[in-house]
Design a protein around this nucleic acid. Structure first.
Lengths: 142, 142
DNA sequence: AAACTACATTATAATAATTCTAAACTATTG
DNA sequence: CAATAGTTTAGAATTATTATAATGTAGTTT
């Protein structure tokens, strides 16, 4: 149960009460060796089918957005039909495999640091994200 | 009417019949000095309110997607709620102004060429896109 | 230039993704 | 252990997008 205690603390830090549903979400999201990329559907499916726990769509949306706002999740938008969340909230870039619809983190060593030479007057840069779409060599993607 | 003739030819090249609705769309999209960033809603609004021409949502969706498939428009996805199209279909990057919801093209000179050191085995790179989110210096964005 | 055919447009319905609502429930505080 | 403030939920509402099928139109044939 030490694991659970971590999640309880994590939720408190974020200002959320540790409810059963939120603890189940934490279990799926943060109890991993690697970071995790998922859609809202993926998450609901994992909790209801793999964990056999009931959770409503509304709770998943609410809690994911709460985590996002507090910086515990990051949204990665591929196109208007594909939106993912990432448990890796550090500044980093992505490969997107169009064959498998899989999102893959770039290591810092995979890509040179992005150097932006222009400034928009009066504006500061909030984020710089690179998305590299890849697909199988022998088939032509859209 | 020479302008119109260009659009007729352009549509033919793309394999689309030059109908009144499509010519109106071309007028809004391609009769510009600079490239243009827009949402589906923007486009409908411009045609119906500014041009005072009737067009159905379905036609706009169909034709925008036809242009996109043929490479005359490019989709730029900001987040799950904001999807733009760009009449500049060359490989280039973007600034997104979170204050004004405005998408701004990067010139090649604004940003160093992206150098990717890693290859995903058996995959080829289809696109590399950088999105730089900016916002006013003195207010804290979400 | 009438008639034919294949493609387009449209209003509307269908689907999908997300947000809202209000009633029932639960964690925390005193 | 009662009060209360926050949470969950089913279902309704909203929004974005796609499908449908009837009507309309461009391009071709005669």
């Amino acid at each position: 149960m030490t694991k659970n205690c971590n999640f309880i603390e994590k939720l408190r830090e974020v200002g959320l009460r540790p409810t059963k549903q939120r603890l189940n979400m934490c279990e799926v999201l943060f109890n991993r060796e690697k970071t995790f990329h998922f859609t809202i559907r993926d998450l609901v499916k994992l909790i209801s089918e793999k964990m056999n726990q009931k959770i409503s769509l509304a709770t998943v949306y609410n809690t994911v957005h709460a985590f996002e706002k507090k910086g515990y999740l990051k949204e990665i938008s591929i196109d208007s039909h594909k939106s993912y969340f990432d448990t890796n909230t550090s500044a980093h870039h992505h490969f997107f495999d169009e064959d498998t619809n899989e999102l893959i983190d770039c290591d810092d060593s995979d890509i040179d640091k992005i150097n932006i030479r222009k400034n928009i007057t009066g504006k500061k840069i909030n984020s710089v994200e690179v998305l590299i779409k890849v697909a199988s060599d022998n088939q032509n993607q859209k």
